[in-house]
Write a protein that binds this DNA or RNA. Sequence first.
RNA 1: GGAGGGGUUCCCGAGUGGCCAAAGGGAUCAGACUGUAAAUCUGACGCGAAAGCUUCGGUGGUUCGAAUCCACCCCCCUCCA
Length: 431
Amino acid sequence: MSSALLADLRARGLIFQIAGEDDLPGWLDSGVRTLYCGFDPTADSLHIGSLVPLLMLRRFQLAGHRPLALVGGATGLIGDPSFKARERQLNTADVIAEWVDKIRLQVSRFIDFDAGPVSAEVVNNLDWTRDMSVLTFLRDVGKHFSVNAMIQKESVKQRIERDGSGISFTEFTYMILQSYDFAELNRRYGCGLQLGGSDQWGNITGGIDLTRRMYGEQVFGLTMPLITKADGTKFGKTESGTVWLDPARTSPYAFYQFWLNTGDVDVYRFLKYFTFLPVADIDALERADAERQGRPEAQAILAREVTLLVHGEAGVQAAQRITEALFSGALEQLSAGDLAQLRQDGLPATTLDPDTLPSTLTQLLTESGMASSGKQVKDALGRQAVTINNRSLGWEDNDRIAACFNPELALHGRYYVTRLGKKKYHLFELG
RNA sequence: GGAGGGGUUCCCGAGUGGCCAAAGGGAUCAGACUGUAAAUCUGACGCGAAAGCUUCGGUGGUUCGAAUCCACCCCCCUCCA
């Protein structure tokens, strides 16, 4: 059964490297195994970069194993230098503790805590490092590490060799801390497999070595590939920044839109990475899309599936409702209730006070967050790329803001659906 | 502590007294073409509606004029002790 899991993961392209490759299938097949993946609190929310590992834990759980999600209350205090170009700024312990709590909750929605012998658990590495003394650490843990080997690790090599940026002892030590996590989880839970992104290879093998040295146990490591886009730009970023899992940071609508905008070249690969749809189905979809004229179906399925995983059915409903209303262009068909709902569902919105309107559109649209500078608005206006309730505006309308928001033009007397470019929507509502 | 190299607009990276709001590339935004795609082409890209205002690690100084010269300071890197 578990060998089947590995085969599926391989078919999905989710396996980058395996440590202990020959013995891993047998180990997995011979019973319920405990595995873990760590998530460091570098912000108060995870972003979609953590999605692959989170779903990975779930894949293992569905295959009959027990996942541990480690939240790095301790490692988050230090900062992982792996493949980072420069030293990072430390955050205070209070801040990290706060983030740990939030991330613990976030992580929890992806794994099942009530699944009998394979029930998941969230652990925090601060629990076993907080009270450890420096001397104990140096004597019992540090002694197992060779600095000669550590500086050879690819993940820190650049930092050690490269001109213009070095590495502090603090960050250099990160690997030892994470390695100790693996050993400790092995001791406490019998945990025998660590998952991580491909950038974690060095840290994972460090943990494997330490576990062997401290407890004589053979443990395994598995890394997932870095998610890339075919055009070479960074995955997981949009014009408005990182795509977060927290709906307060990235609304389900924005989240849905992110996936809907996936390029054709990437979408089938992403379906394999980010959904639980069978590989055969995804391949069939790809063939069907190839024969179809025009727009493929894959993006809509991807957007639906991933939004469902992260934001639930209600999130999908909201996202689709907004998408349909806006992109069909049939604004006049929306009832007042629909518009109020859109706002509640996460469509960016601003309440306008007719008496204190700014004097220009550039100002209003910048302040509302639709554009990052007046120049952009100016450019868009000059190209007829701004519309209010489907009425196109030009540069000459910039200072005729009262006319643009004339109550007679409002939907249901108070709503203005404003669009900048093809995809950026904002709802203005008279207060 | 000593010697050397370096800190430029989101990123990389030119610029070494005026023609510099600062080349070029990337990223980003908008338009055309489309399928809310890709590729391509076009425009924008410090802030500002404009007048104009504020930038080149920091603070002072030289000069009619400084990212460019000088002084001091801060930070980073390399080598030596």
